[in-house]
Amino acid sequence: MLLGLTVVWTVMIWNLTFAHLYKGDSHEVQTAKDPGREQPKPVEGKAAFQKQILDSEKTVKLYLGYQVLEQKQLLGHFHIVDIQLKPDTRNYCISCHGDIPHDKFKDLRAFGNMHASFIACQTCHIRLEGDQATHIFKWYDRATGQIVPSPVKDGALPGTYNAKIIPFERVDGALQRIDSQARIDFAAEYRKQEQSLSEVQKSKAKKIIHQQVSKQPYMCESCHVQQGSLLPFEELGYSKQRIDAFVGTEVIGMIKNYTQFYLPHILEPGIGSHEPEKKVQ
């Protein structure tokens, strides 16, 4: 044992003395805090992937005095963003598309992403018709995936719901949630086997997964209307006050102005020449 200790100590001292000669400057250079300044260079290769993707996420420690907050570094962030929502593990759309998926349409993307934090993708992107439509929506917990009572009713503040709204469909007369286990398993299987599938198989699988997705998602006015809203707000646990807030003039008025004065094509994104507005600084 003494021999072992001696060897360990000798190696350590050797390294201390000479390591800097053959390892070069071993002081870790911590790169600047501002990743946004670097545009991704179109360099290929595994090393580039390692550097630009795997190593690019930096965490930042914020000493708040009473708490030490470690969060992923956000570009140019001044406000302390302490997102305490647990990641959504049940939703299989997110496993490919991510949970901030809206990106293409400048006018809509931030709003879409905003709603995505408490409304599941399927709610807006799948129009249930005829027999299948049930107008039944429930909340499911982000972490466990189980149906839970309404977080709104439980008094959670807006922006802190750890649950999402999911529609229910009617299949063979029975009610089932639209993100059924069968569909989840199918998608998971696809992801697992994607490497070994042929082009035809991949195409087929993707078509099956996206079978239900409608070409045209529900837009703002499907829910934000006084009468005939898509979502049953009372059943979802919203108080009268809250319902008034989001079907009131504030929101509906904003939507109307939005669509009529600034962006007439908002209801038909992608159709017609939709020129992107000048980029915001």
Binding site: D99, I100, P158, A245
Partner: peptide, 23 residues
């Protein structure tokens, strides 16, 4: 009314996350 939702944000062209959420 909009900025209190954590999802409020997007990924920009460089793939950097931009969050407009205020706690």
């Amino acid at each position: 009314i909009c900025h209190r939702y954590p999802g409020m944000g997007r990924f920009d062209e460089a793939g950097v996350k931009r969050i407009y959420y205020i706690n």
